[in-house]
Design a protein around this nucleic acid. Structure first.
Length: 958
RNA sequence: GCGGGGGUAGCCAAGCUUGGCCAACGGCGCAGGACUUAAGAUUCUGUCCUUAGUGGUUCAAGGGUUCGAAUCCCUUCCCCCGCACCA
């Protein structure tokens, strides 16, 4: 795209914004409030992100056309550690980060400032608003911009949490979270803001099985508590150091390392003394659940750093256990060294416990054989374990050996058996990280018990029920999600809503040591856009927005004079804000990417339901899918990774907007493809040129004028229907492709009437405004219209403008030409004369009779034949007549009611074709004659005229 | 495993809810014609096979329902996404 285009875009944006048509103020009109789920401020966005945002602007613009007072606010979400992480990387001069910033044309002198997380947020807020959203010509009310770091926003969030507390939806219970042993809570994520290594670690829950052994318990940590029925022995690492620990009445034995971890998770641990691994070998202990006595045996694979450093042995399902057991059984020297009874150990056999499709009941034995694993310590054991575990977890089922659990799936059995053992005091839980994590300070990161973690109780059944009820009445797109969201709401459970540590966010109002986490502070926020304007313009300060303020303006609770006195906000302003809130809310549409389906949208809905009265609950959700790069993510090498301003420059904003709107259904991922985008650039240019050409026309009226007007008017009507479900793609198709083809056809048919063109522009330009607003304005102005198309109303269709018969006649002409082309193609004739025959009058009378019969539902071949053959003027045609009746009846019986309706829309074919002869002879470069079949003295050597039927003339080419 | 989505002509992609002008919108690509000194742009025509406008075979595969199915039902094969504390 040319510079001219960018200048043109800037020109119109400047006009829109200086005329403030984007600003939303309460008035008498019906309102429409729409948002997109604000993006997290984590860095530059790419062209894929603009898809959903563009939908929102196009929908907002369309709603303006329909006469709504539209509010389309934007904001950003800075909560979490994204900005902190980026600032940290800039601070430490991370090369990739600097390159990334500069590659996106971040000014060099910014780098120093970006060491401060808040500056990072401010910087990107500016980038998003100015380089993305304004660059795309969004009619968003910029005065309402807000960000989760703003103090006023945070006052709103604190209020929201007070309301959740009031409703009894905040609950406290223990929780296990990663923490540095010296710093406290840390974030573990791939960007490794807080940590040196281990960004991919996950928290894993081990079940500690208690094996009674004399006066103590050997504690075996396992991820597979459901395998207890397969236990055959117990593993101890003879080299490792273990400790005895008193906890309550019990004495546990765990590895040194495990003891340390447990001190963060269990209260009242008392270390009694150390014990070497080899001292624990050859003991007999009682296995939990099965209450069998088993033997403790030596195994090197027990890592004291993993779990408790003690392992229960299930050789049927654990490749490690099976290989170690077999090796030990063959190793008489070792057995003797530990004073073990050789025969007893050799008698140990795996016990089948789980059956799964395609496997024997001893999968560990099977997999090791298959993979040829022989010795303990084989690195492939890890892979073998994963494979068996995964298969078993998903498809496994417990067999008879598991007693009352027989028949349960592994998944179910795992949960149940774990619970039962915990309740019986035979097991406990411990948490660990899947890999080592080291804090920035160099200390270890462990899983620490948090006793007083706060949760939002999304499992609350009243809340769930009310939310589902609300969802039923909402406009939710796509339809599948409307079905699905009920399941999601049902499945949503308590969610930890606060964090400690290094996060950006709002302080939890009931305990300032907590920061409200990222999902929880972005659910009710659309409401805040109504109020943010007052904070941004300075008429209400953050500290004035206390609980009573929001109670009053949102919930109508409290007294104006009192709240005014206590907050210092003038009473009149309070009224004003209150009325704003109740005018704009509820939110009409919340649009967001598909990643929001399982978390954000349900939480958004449930928080609204929890806090607000029924009449303020949201009305719509729209989910959009992604623009992806070839083979998945958008990337530099595969296209689409270029900065948004660069793409705007290269392709043109209107072209990009049209691309997003039209390339595919919103509910499907699309692969970014430069060529495809370029074709939309070409399309925008073609459209513009075509319309400018039309505007230059100044000729006489002709028969196609009414056709074109009808066509456009029909499209306006259809678009109204389509846009009731925000079907931008179909609208784009109608305007930029279908209507475009109409315009070309009009010109081809010789249409050139200025007045018609004027009317067409009235109808068409507003419809172009939502998707290609800059071009629409440009053409609006070029056509001599005043004002801006962005603030016009959708055109009203005049009485009689839609004339379906005219449209049908033109379709008939096209079909005729298709037939003629077909004949010319097949025969290869270069025509010197084309003769068209309309059917003989009696054929119309047969059609009429057929329509009558069809209207009564009595159309059948014999019925029609009988009815028409009784008439003399038909009967005299003999077999030709009966054949025609048969074919017609067969044809018509295949039609839908709509199809029959079209057939019934009759017009004078003879006259119409005669009016087209000039056009047709121009098209075909030969003389064109029109006759009625059975007209005397017409050249028709092959009796082609007999083929004519109503709606389909016969053609003779020579 | 649970939940969800999908397989349409060379490619992308509509249609499927409410079965019937559906051989299947549209775009891209390709081929040919027109315009042009030429190129580009534009425009017209064609693009499953066959054919004086007909007929045949198609919408992952195989069954079924129906006068009639890309559309509804069943079975099979293949692909994708989500499963949480991450926005």
């Amino acid at each position: 795209m040319s510079v001219r285009s960018s200048e043109m875009e800037a020109k119109w944006q400047e006009r829109w914004y200086s005329a403030r048509i984007n600003e939303a103020e309460r008035d008498e009109r019906p309102k429409f409030m729409v948002i997109f789920a604000y993006p997290g401020v984590t860095g530059y966005l790419h062209v894929g992100h603009m898809r959903g945002y563009t939908y929102v602007d196009a929908i907002a613009r369309y709603k303006r056309l329909e006469g709504y007072n539209v509010m389309f606010p934007v904001g950003t979400h800075a909560t979490g550690n994204g900005a902190i992480s980026l600032a940290a990387r800039v601070s430490r001069g991370d090369r990739d980060t600097i390159e990334y910033l500069c590659g996106n044309s971040c000014p060099l002198d910014m780098l120093e400032r970006l060491k401060d997380p808040i500056k990072v947020v401010e910087f990107f807020n500016d980038v998003y608003v100015n380089q993305y959203w304004k660059r795309f010509g969004f009619l968003s009310d910029w005065r309402r911009f807000t960000s989760t770091v703003n103090p006023d926003y945070q006052m709103f969030i604190r209020w929201q949490f007070r309301k959740l507390m009031e409703r009894g939806l905040l609950i406290q219970k223990p929780y296990f979270a990663p923490a540095c042993v010296s710093h406290g809570p840390v974030a573990i994520d791939a960007s490794e803001t807080d940590i040196q290594c281990g960004g991919c670690a996950e928290t894993v829950e081990y079940t500690m099985l208690k094996f009674r052994c004399e006066d103590m318990y050997l504690m075996a940590a396992t991820l597979r508590p459901e395998t207890v029925f397969g236990q055959t022995n117990f593993w101890v690492n003879p080299q490792a150091d273990y400790v005895k620990v008193r906890i309550g009445e019990e004495v546990w034995v765990v590895s040194d390392a495990a003891y340390e971890k447990l001190t963060y998770q269990k209260d009242g641990l008392e270390k009694l003394g150390s014990v070497k691994g080899d001292e624990l070998i050859g003991l007999r202990c009682i296995a939990p659940m099965v209450h069998r006595e088993i033997l403790t045996l030596p195994a090197d694979f027990c890592d004291p750093k993993v779990g408790t450093g003690l392992v229960t042995s299930v050789p049927s399902d654990s490749p490690d256990d099976w290989i170690s057991l077999r090796a030990l059984q063959r190793d008489e020297a070792t057995l003797r060294r530990y004073g073990l009874d050789v025969e007893e150990v050799r008698a140990i056999r795996p016990i089948p416990i789980i059956e799964m499709k395609g496997w024997s009941t001893l999968p560990a034995v099977e997999i090791t054989e298959r993979m040829g694993i022989e010795a303990p310590g084989d690195p492939r054991l890890e892979e073998a374990k994963k494979l068996v575990y995964k298969e078993g977890f998903h498809t496994g089922r417990m067999i008879e050996s598991s007693g009352e659990y027989a028949g349960l799936s592994v998944m179910e059995a795992k949960e149940r058996m774990k619970q039962v053992m915990i309740e019986a005091g035979e097991a406990d839980l411990m948490y660990d990280l899947s890999e080592e994590v080291i804090c920035r300070c160099g200390e270890k990161v462990v899983i620490k018990k948090v006793d007083d973690q706060w949760f939002i109780d999304y499992a609350n059944s009243d809340l769930t029920k009310a939310s589902r009820e609300q969802a039923k009445g909402m406009d939710i797109f796509p339809n599948d999600y409307l079905q699905n969201i009920h399941g999601v709401l049902e499945w949503f459970r308590e969610r930890a809503c606060v964090r400690q540590g290094n996060w950006i966010g709002t302080r939890f109002p009931f305990d300032e040591k907590w920061i409200i986490e990222a999902i929880s502070d972005s659910t009710l926020y659309p409401l805040y856009y109504v109020i943010s304007k007052y904070a941004n313009e300075g008429s209400v300060r953050a500290e004035q927005m206390d609980e009573r303020f929001f109670d009053l303006v949102v919930l109508d609770r409290g007294d104006y004079s009192q709240v005014s006195a206590s907050t210092g906000v003038p009473e009149e302003l309070l009224h004003h804000i209150r009325d704003d809130v109740h005018y704009w809310y509820p939110l009409d549409l919340n649009l967001g990417g598909k990643e929001h389906m399982t978390v954000h949208f349900p939480a958004f809905l449930m928080n609204h339901v929890a806090v607000l009265p029924r009449e303020m609950l949201p009305r719509g959700i729209f989910v959009n899918w992604y623009i992806v790069g070839k083979g998945g993510k958008i990337s530099k090498s595969k296209g689409g990774a270029q900065p948004i301003p660069g793409a705007a420059e290269q392709f043109g904003v209107d072209a990009l907007r049209l691309y997003y709107a039209h390339i595919a259904s919103p509910f499907a991922d699309v692969e970014w493809d430069n060529e495809a985008v370029e074709s939309y650039t070409a399309r925008v240019e073609k459209m513009e040129r075509t319309l400018l050409d039309l505007m230059a026309l100044d000729g006489p009226a002709s028969s196609v004028d009414d056709w074109l007007i009808s066509r456009m008017a029909s499209r306006v009507r259809r678009i109204r229907e389509l846009m009731a479900s925000y079907d931008l793609r179909s609208m784009a198709n109608e305007v930029y492709f279908e209507a475009f083809n109409d315009l070309r056809w009009y010109q081809r048919r010789g249409g050139c009437h200025a007045e018609t063109v004027t009317r067409v522009m009235d109808l068409l330009l507003p419809l172009m405004m939502p998707i290609t607003p800059h071009m629409a304005e440009e053409l609006w102005e070029a056509s001599g219209r005043s004002g801006m198309v962005s603030i016009t109303a959708l055109p009203q269709i005049g009485e009689g403008e839609i004339d379906l018969t005219k449209e049908r006649a033109e379709d008939y002409l096209r079909a005729l030409m298709d037939d003629a082309n077909e004949i010319l193609k097949v025969t290869g004739i270069r025509p010197t004369r084309i003769t068209l025959f309309t059917p003989a009058p009696w054929k119309y009378s047969v059609l009429e009779t057929a329509m009558e019969l069809a209207g009564r539902g009595e159309l059948k071949v014999p019925a029609l034949t009988k009815a028409v053959m009784s008439r003399e003027e038909v009967r005299c045609k003999g077999k030709e007549a009966s054949d025609f009746a048969r074919k017609l009846a067969e044809e018509m019986m295949k039609r839908s009611a709509e199809g029959l309706g079209r057939m019934g829309r009759q017009f004078d074919e003879l006259e119409f074709l005669r009016s087209c002869t000039d056009f047709l002879s121009r098209e075909y470069g030969c003389t064109v004659e029109v006759h009625q079949a059975e007209e005397p003295d017409v050249n028709d050597p092959h009796h082609k005229s007999r083929q004519a039927s109503p709606g389909r003339p016969a053609i003779l080419v020579e």
